[in-house]
Nucleic acid binder design. Structure first.
Lengths: 92, 92
DNA sequence: CAAGTATTTAGATATTCATCAAAATACTAA
DNA sequence: TTAGTATTTTGATGAATATCTAAATACTTG
């Protein structure tokens, strides 16, 4: 899950994940939403893909990206397990 | 919450947070658990403190650190709101 | 005061990382 | 084939970061 933490640490990548919740997008569509170069977005997409947070599917000329809900929810669950209320350490 | 994400991005800092769930610890006690220098741990503690994830209390010769449950739970809730429930939340 | 302990701060270094422009790859269309 | 579009890869650069040692701060005690 180290890769996921690393992937989530960047605000641009979190914004990409948020956008993908509303539906799949091509690399170009994602890139259009940001002020950084397409190369930079491609780099972010690669990190998200390697973390398993998104998947990509090559179509004719475009590559469509899709949120991988499962990995993301595992991440949330992992946080909850590691840090979620473990009980009894708030008395003093 | 940007600071919180940044603070959580480092594995040493996440380990510190996990340890503090079992009770307050002094800087020295925390430092003893890791193979890095006390100065480095102090640096990590500063970042966690600035993110609001921990608080510090000066005692006689030591400084005791304590997990700030509230900020951490707000962070979890923020993630859940931004990413957790896709499709079944109706906002106003 | 001087010495010892606990912790932080300062200064330096090495690595990681976000970014860009340019080149490369892959595909489509004329 | 040539040109054009979509995307990634490469190579470079500057900024951020984790780390160290050494010095500084703060506190306690003899």
């Amino acid at each position: 899950m180290k890769d996921v933490w690393n992937a989530m640490a960047d605000p641009t990548r979190r914004a990409i994940l948020t956008m993908l919740q509303n539906g799949d997008m091509t690399a170009g569509e994602i890139s259009d939403k940001f002020d950084v170069s397409g190369a930079t977005i491609s780099h972010h997409l690669k990190i998200l893909r390697e973390a398993g947070l998104i998947t990509s599917e090559k179509e004719k000329q475009t590559i469509t990206y899709r949120l991988n809900i499962t990995v993301f929810q595992d991440f949330l669950k992992g946080i909850a397990e590691a840090f979620g209320m473990k009980g009894e350490n708030h008395e003093k």
